[in-house]
Computed example of a mutant assay.
Amino acid sequence: MRIYSLLLSFTLLAACFSPTRGIVTSASVVAGGVPVVVAGPPGFCIDERTGEQNRAGAFVILSDCGQTGAGRATIADVPLSAVLVAAVSPSGLLGARERGMGGALADLEEFLRSPAGLPSLGKGREPAAVSILRSYRTADALYILVQDRAAPSGAGLSQRFWRAFTEVNGRLASLSANSFANSDASEARARALAEGFVAAMQAANATGARL
């Protein structure tokens, strides 16, 4: 499945994350020839210098942001609480047209729980270190709490993180929320961020709302 390259690219981008001043609250990317607006939950902005677009899709990193006195977004001097990543595939959710969103998300979850799919959820590229701690589905998204005991620790991120999968504008989006180590043992805030991320992406790509 094309999801392999999408998730691998998340690992590479997260490793090179560094805050800069070139940020916006939303951005339009192109995946498989289709424009998709990337937007995060309230309080998160896009660092334009970390994005990438190629034949494998589009990849964007978001972090905490504030507002300057002039009303512009900024991440200077804003404590970082989590790192969010949007990875948009050049194709849609497999089986969505034939089985509907519910059936396609169920198929995706089954694949990700399989020996072939489980390693793609991790960041450390060690299949045996990856496990699913919890998962649930809504009408338009699949949420998975992942633990990767081999995840790179240099950035200080927790080895537990939430991934959400949803379709926006006909493209499969993998949305990740990763807190910093020891900041939230239960990952409750990361889960809320993942849910807010899905809601923001859906709203930004609703008819008439695209950039």
Rank of each mutant, 00 (worst) to 15 (best):
I3W: 02
I3E: 10
Y4Q: 14
S5Y: 15
S5L: 13
L6V: 13
L7K: 05
S9R: 15
F10G: 13
T11H: 09
T11I: 04
L12I: 05
P19H: 04
R21E: 12
G22L: 13
V24M: 09
V24D: 08
V24A: 15
T25Y: 03
S26N: 13
A27G: 02
S28V: 14
V30L: 13
G33Q: 06
P35D: 05
P35Q: 07
P41Y: 01
F44I: 00
R49A: 08
N54I: 04
A56F: 14
A58P: 00
V60D: 00
D64A: 14
G66F: 04
Q67E: 14
A73W: 06
T74I: 09
A76G: 00
D77I: 02
L80Y: 00
S81M: 12
V83D: 07
V85W: 01
V88M: 07
V88D: 09
S89G: 06
A96E: 11
R97F: 03
R99P: 02
R99T: 13
M101A: 10
M101C: 10
L105F: 11
L105S: 05
L105I: 07
F111S: 08
L112T: 04
L112P: 02
A116M: 10
L118H: 06
L118A: 08
P119I: 03
P119F: 06
S120I: 11
G124A: 10
A129H: 10
V130T: 08
Y136R: 14
T138I: 12
A141E: 08
L142F: 10
L142W: 11
L142Q: 08
Y143H: 14
Y143V: 07
Y143T: 05
V146M: 12
A150E: 15
P152C: 07
P152Y: 04
A155M: 15
A155W: 12
L157G: 12
R163F: 09
F165A: 04
V168K: 11
S176T: 10
N178L: 04
S179Q: 11
S183V: 02
D184Q: 06
E187G: 07
E187N: 15
A188P: 01
A188C: 01
R189T: 11
A190T: 01
L193C: 01
A194I: 00
E195Y: 06
G196P: 01
V198L: 04
V198C: 03
A203M: 08
A203W: 03
T207Q: 14
A209E: 12
